[in-house]
């Protein structure tokens, strides 16, 4: 495939268009670091302990209450944002997507890639470094783009998003375990995936991000038709990632699906809660404005 592949070009254009449209809807501004440091903006107090700088002692409180407390301040620095994108074959399914993408119209991948592009654009416009990791997929030129700032990085990122075709398995557990040590400390990690692997398998891998004090935010992309199993008549359902097909009657399955989905989401949220991760649902059939809004809140 060449860079002039019309499909890729069409996707690139569509990604930019969608991203800019979405980013235009949000205000721009600075963000606080998760790290506490010496700075002018007050953060909170803590009891004095030997070794703390004396200049940070709050003499007024010491005079009033005879207690020694130290003032702490937010550090102001750049925030590295690392986008982890699931490009497994399962992401190619779905038909109800609101963001057409050439060759992959309505799929979970189209929603996920638009979301990644939007987020990258928004971060880039703030001057912060942004990186990208693609899990699985085909024709991935750079599966790992370390966070960098600037237009060139954004271009590379768009190019990867445009060229990548969802295929194979993501192996979330293995991939996240390998990725954890590579991301910067105190960075923001945004995982965009349909999470169609057992939470009990990939959940423990999230601890790697917690250890590096990363702000973890997981965007759970899903096709509502898949979750309600509104898939027409009886059929033989198979996963693009492989495995045994299952013969099912959508009427029977649909009756059971809500309970199963609820149990599944509860399990996902339980694992994310362990590492204080934010769980954001991203149905493919709805506008991503709300999702992006949840995602960048607190940045």
């Amino acid at each position: 495939m060449t860079i002039w592949d019309p499909v890729v070009v069409a996707r690139l254009a569509a990604l930019e268009l969608h991203a800019r449209t979405l980013v235009a809807g949000f205000r721009t501004g600075g963000h606080r670091s998760r790290r506490v440091s010496s700075n002018i903006e007050f953060a909170d107090y803590k009891p004095y302990t030997p070794g703390d700088p004396l200049r940070d002692l709050d003499w007024r409180i010491a005079a009033r209450s005879d207690r020694l407390v130290v003032r702490r301040h937010h550090a102001e620095e750049e925030l590295a944002v690392h986008i982890v994108l699931d490009a497994s074959a399962d992401m190619s399914t779905g038909t109800a997507g609101a963001y057409p993408l050439a060759g992959l119209d309505g799929s979970k991948w189209s929603t996920a890639s638009v979301l990644a592009a939007t987020l990258a654009l928004w971060v880039s416009q703030r001057g912060d470094p942004v990186g990208l990791s693609v899990l699985g997929g085909k024709q991935v030129q750079w599966p790992w783009l370390p966070p960098k700032a600037g237009a060139a990085q954004l271009g590379r990122l768009y190019r990867v998003l445009s060229e990548t075709r969802p295929e194979g398995r993501a192996d979330l557990s293995e991939s996240l375990m390998q990725l954890g040590p590579r991301v910067r400390r105190n960075s923001l990690v945004v995982v965009i995936s349909d999470l169609m692997e057992s939470p009990a398998e990939w959940g423990p891998a999230l601890d790697a991000f917690g250890e590096r004090r990363c702000d973890l935010r997981v965007v759970h992309v899903h096709d509502p038709d898949e979750w309600t199993f509104a898939l027409g008549d009886i059929g033989r359902f198979f996963s693009p990632e492989g495995g045994l097909p299952v013969d099912a009657d959508p009427i029977d399955v649909a009756a059971q699906m809500p309970e199963v989905v609820e149990a599944y989401l509860t399990e996902v949220r339980a694992w994310l809660a362990r590492c204080r991760g934010l769980h954001v649902l991203a149905p493919t059939n709805s506008e991503l404005g709300g999702v992006v809004s949840q995602l960048i809140r607190g940045m």
Binding site: M196, F229, G235, V246, V253
Partner: peptide, 23 residues
């Protein structure tokens, strides 16, 4: 039982397998 002739790609097999298990 009825043998389905339609093959449908499905991206949430994890959920379908859990439904089938309950059924």
């Amino acid at each position: 039982r009825r043998k389905p002739t339609r093959r449908v790609p499905y991206g949430a097999m994890l959920l379908l397998q859990r439904v089938v298990k309950r059924q």
